[in-house]
Design a protein around this nucleic acid. Structure first.
Lengths: 173, 173
DNA sequence: TATAGAGCAGTAATCACTTAA
DNA sequence: ATTAAGTGATTACTGCTCTAT
């Protein structure tokens, strides 16, 4: 199997880690183009005193890192969107209830919607093709996979989500 | 590729990778405990002929990998939930509109709601703390194609989501 | 208060595999 | 068909934070 002992112990000053200047320039190059045509690659390598191979690898790793980081942002953004939509949803529900009350008042009769809590009242709602057949208006499923998952459909949708509100990762932190 | 500094070799003699058996057992250990108390660590290391350090590092990397993978799943699940909520939202909106129409009919005139291009009409809606947002109510389709990101730029047209506009994903897919 | 140790994020580098010229 | 470049998964290391001794 792998070397029983990997004396990779840094030879005093491991030449790993590129200098800040090199990083700065690589970063700048990455900002303009996430991929490097061989032309630029050799050029950058020469300018930074690195081997083309290292530049190529740096870009590869950079793309991978960027992807991960971006996914995290996307997730946070989506979570925020969800929270916002959730708020709007609740709001809309209240507005609707208000309308229902007014209608009841105007029409006089007592409605089956008294205790409410189940959308779909029997007024002539024409568009009733509700894709997922709304069962009960409140919490969403959100069972997500795995055990530690949660995001518990309720604690999270009334707050603006600060990325790490409900942690399924509590395990790791 | 022509790498100037790599010892020419390959053909099934990769001395870095752990053996399948080692991986299998590490994986099994990870399944039962994502973290290893020093006790187990030394034990596992001995059993697999690895240094405790290597076992520790493997677990570290494994946790990181798991986290990424899990995040992807969470994202997909959240996206699906968003889509479902979005549908319910649309549905609710239609119901509300229906009620508004009925109310207008019963009350004769409607005036106030004329320009309302969507939610937020001024009936006695007390809770009007719409977090932010509510620009235009529409278009949040999205077809959630398989596993790869996609999910049709909803993130770009619905909520605040700033930086890194939409366009990044042209390179990665 | 110091200090040894564990976890973690970020990196560098390698390898096997896939893709495009 | 070769072959160079990209990709995903890995192994390992460094530096920092936090924690318990």
């Amino acid at each position: 199997m792998a070397d029983p002992i990997t004396p990779r112990k840094s030879r005093s000053s491991d030449k790993r880690r590129f200098s800040d200047e090199q990083i700065r320039r690589l970063e700048a190059a990455f900002a303009s183009e996430s991929k490097l045509e061989p032309r630029r690659k050799a050029e950058v390598a020469r300018e930074l005193g690195l081997q083309p191979r290292q530049v190529a690898i740096w870009f590869q790793n950079k793309r991978a890192r960027w992807k991960s980081k971006h996914l995290e942002k996307e997730y946070a953004a989506l979570a925020a969107s969800y929270g916002a939509l959730s708020d709007r949803f609740e709001s809309l529900k209240r507005e609707k209830q208000s309308l229902v009350d007014q209608l009841k008042k105007l029409k006089g009769e007592g409605g089956s919607d008294g205790e409410s809590e189940s959308g779909k009242n029997e007024f002539e709602v024409k568009n009733n093709e509700g894709v997922g057949v709304v069962e009960e208006e409140e919490e969403m499923m959100m069972r997500m996979v795995d055990t530690t998952s949660d995001w518990g459909g309720l604690d999270c949708d009334d707050v603006v989500m600060d990325q790490s509100s409900c942690q399924w990762w509590g395990f790791w932190s």
